[in-house]
């Protein structure tokens, strides 16, 4: 290593430093201008949508005027970033509204730019564009692209296949349960949540035929998804499906079953079954959850609680003791704790 070599190295790293300074300056200027532009687009779009949904008959808002105003704030084919921002606003609005206005919006979206931007994205190579394109298609309910989107339901990229599967629910509703619980790859908790919510918002009337068919699935995520659907739609007739899974060997399936059963109040017979399950479930955390559910949803069954007071887990025993103590059985709790000490021991109590 020579001095000249080190000097050259210093010059190189100094050059990199200068490049960073320039980048920081450019970024700051760009951000400032961009924020202003985005604000303008948002204000214009908010005004257009509100006027379109509640049009003034004396001074109607025409599509040509809408397009001119959008153009004036930079929504042009060449300006992809602005177009993308507009799409985000469109989705945000569409997701906010239901009923007749939802269809009014859909009609508006068909007449304003960006006409085919989402569809173009799904034919691109990168996962990000594809997944974004699919999301835009289902969020804006562009059902004409349904078949193109379905092709991606088993894509190797998790985001692409996730969006495609959600699209399936948006376009097919309950019938999508024909496929969903049988998918090859695992689905995330978020996907389950989103599927249930899309069903609830867009197809509020349950179609039991598809739900019951899906019960045959042996996929764990499928079982969890179905239990969440039963819970969300409060399908009392389907409670047995959840109850069946309270003793499932998989921890997470049991956890979902316990979570879902808590939505329902049960008959005495079913509650007796839950009490039996409580004694068989091997995990104390889940036992505590069940105990809480039993306590909050049934009358005090002193025999049951006294039996649990003699169990193995100290924390559960403490929970049981609290229930008995607060429900008029103080003496039973005292009796239980006193009997643990030898008869001739000197207790520090008066």
């Amino acid at each position: 290593m020579t001095e000249a070599g080190v000097l050259l190295f210093i010059q190189c790293v100094l050059a990199i430093l200068v490049i960073y300074w320039i980048s920081i300056a450019i970024t700051m200027v760009y951000r400032k201008n961009r924020m202003r532009a985005l604000e303008r687009i948002e204000h214009t779009f908010a005004d257009i949508v509100s006027r379109y949904l509640y049009n003034n008959e004396d001074d109607p808002l025409l599509i040509s005027e809408i397009n001119d105003r959008l153009k004036a704030v930079g929504i042009r084919k060449g300006n992809r970033n602005n177009v993308q921002y507009l799409i985000r606003l469109m989705i945000r609005t569409q997701r906010t509204i239901l009923g007749e206005n939802y269809y009014k919006l859909k009609k508006l979206y068909a007449q304003i730019p960006p006409y085919n931007a989402s569809f173009t994205k799904i034919s691109k190579w990168g996962w990000y564009s594809r997944a974004r394109g699919i999301r835009e298609i289902y969020e804006m309910n562009q059902s004409q692209y349904m078949n193109e989107v379905f092709k991606f339901q088993n894509n190797k990229n998790v985001f692409v296949r996730r969006e495609a599967q959600i699209a399936m629910v948006v376009f097919m509703g309950w019938e999508s349960l024909r496929f969903l619980p049988y998918l090859k790859r695992n689905i995330t908790l978020w996907q389950q949540i989103k599927i249930v919510e899309k069903l609830y918002d867009l197809y509020p009337k349950p179609e039991m035929k598809w739900l019951k068919r899906a019960y045959k699935t042996d996929k764990l995520f499928g079982k969890k998804l179905l239990m969440r659907i039963i819970r969300k739609f409060e399908l009392h007739t389907e409670i047995p499906f959840i109850m069946e899974h309270l003793e499932h060997p998989d921890y997470e399936v049991r956890e979902t079953a316990i979570y879902c059963i808590q939505t329902f109040a049960l008959s005495t017979e079913r509650m007796d079954y839950i009490k039996d399950v409580y004694e068989r479930v091997a995990n104390p955390v889940q036992q505590a959850q069940l105990l809480n559910y039993i306590y909050e949803n049934s009358d005090i069954d002193v025999d049951f609680y006294l039996r649990q007071l003699h169990g193995d887990n100290d924390e559960l025993k403490l929970n049981v003791a609290e229930i008995l103590w607060n429900n008029g059985h103080k003496e039973k709790v005292q009796e239980f704790y006193y009997q643990q000490y030898p008869e001739n021991s000197n207790l520090n109590v008066e």
Partner: peptide, 11 residues
Amino acid sequence: AAYIVGCIFST
């Protein structure tokens, strides 16, 4: 040299 490299990481 070491100082400037350190500055680059912070920058």
